[in-house]
């Protein structure tokens, strides 16, 4: 039974540790999280302020459309192209040569959902709320940070989660170019016809994705005001219908 062999591969303690022949699961997991974390941090630093600015001022919406168009690009192709262009410059320092194109692709993937959702979140804030905020004497930055940002958190989180899933998925493919990370087990297993390893790698990637999304969902639960999510205590329902079903995962994700 292949499932038993996959289970054995996953539960074999030797597979988790590094040896002189193989890199263990823990090391690859750490590498995978590192690639993902760097890309997300850079993407957030670019997309979040930009999305907030575009949403607040209403200027530069073409940037959001342009970023969305990037989604039509086949990720593998862009990854291979950038690797072929960049890697030779780092001859002898192989890992950097593969790391840079990978991170570029990952950032390129993560920016559109964060940018689009941040923009949409801020743009969606009710005109009456915005009017009241300015009318009571909030300055531009106060309106942005005290009102628009907290109100758009559900959409921003959904963009962030969407971006994270895509980055985790694509970091797996980075093993193809070839870089470390959990994808290593999939592509090595394929090359060596070691199917338990290949499938085990798939299971690990799926587990990482699900765990990360769960962590973000938990943070979101505490970060977003109950007044926006509509989760009220003692089963008292919302009277007004303005409460939107806030959490939006999934649909914008494109797995590549």
């Amino acid at each position: 039974m292949i499932i038993t062999r996959v289970f054995n591969w996953l539960t074999d303690g030797d597979n988790w540790k590094d040896s002189h022949l193989n890199t263990g699961i823990l090391t690859q997991l750490e590498a995978h999280i590192r690639f993902t974390g760097i890309a997300l941090a850079v993407a957030i630093l670019i997309a979040l302020p930009l999305g907030m600015l575009i949403g607040h001022t209403g200027r530069g919406t073409w940037l959001v459309s342009a970023a969305n168009a990037v989604r039509a690009l086949p990720t593998v192709g862009v990854l291979v192209l950038l690797t072929v262009i960049i890697a030779p410059h780092f001859h002898g320092r192989t890992d950097t040569g593969y790391l840079i194109p990978t991170e570029i692709v990952l950032v390129l993937l993560a920016v559109p959902p964060i940018l689009a959702n941040t923009y949409a979140g801020i743009d969606n804030v009710s005109p009456a709320v915005r009017d009241a905020a300015a009318g009571m004497g909030m300055t531009g930055p106060q309106v942005l940070f005290q009102v628009e940002l907290p109100c758009s958190l559900p959409l921003i989180f959904s963009g962030l989660r969407s971006a994270t899933l895509q980055v985790i998925a694509t970091a797996t493919i980075a093993s193809y170019v070839p870089l470390g990370g959990l994808g290593r087990f999939i592509y090595d297993g394929l090359a060596q016809q070691d199917y338990p390893q290949m499938i085990g790698g798939g299971v690990l990637v799926a587990a990482l994705a699900l765990t990360t999304d769960l962590i973000f969902a938990t943070i979101q639960r505490y970060a977003v005001s109950r007044g926006i999510t509509g989760r009220f205590p003692r089963g008292r329902p919302a009277v007004a219908s303005e409460v939107q079903s806030a959490v939006l995962t999934g649909p914008e994700v494109s797995h590549a």
Partner: peptide, 30 residues
């Protein structure tokens, strides 16, 4: 402008309450 507005009460058609703040914090905003 922001100093002028803080000295003027402003009520609009759809109230424009801050959905993420409790009622008491909405009132205490200014």
């Amino acid at each position: 402008t922001h100093e002028l507005r803080r000295r003027i009460g402003y009520v609009i058609q759809h109230a424009g309450l801050f959905p993420h703040r409790t009622i008491v914090d909405n009132v205490a905003a200014v």
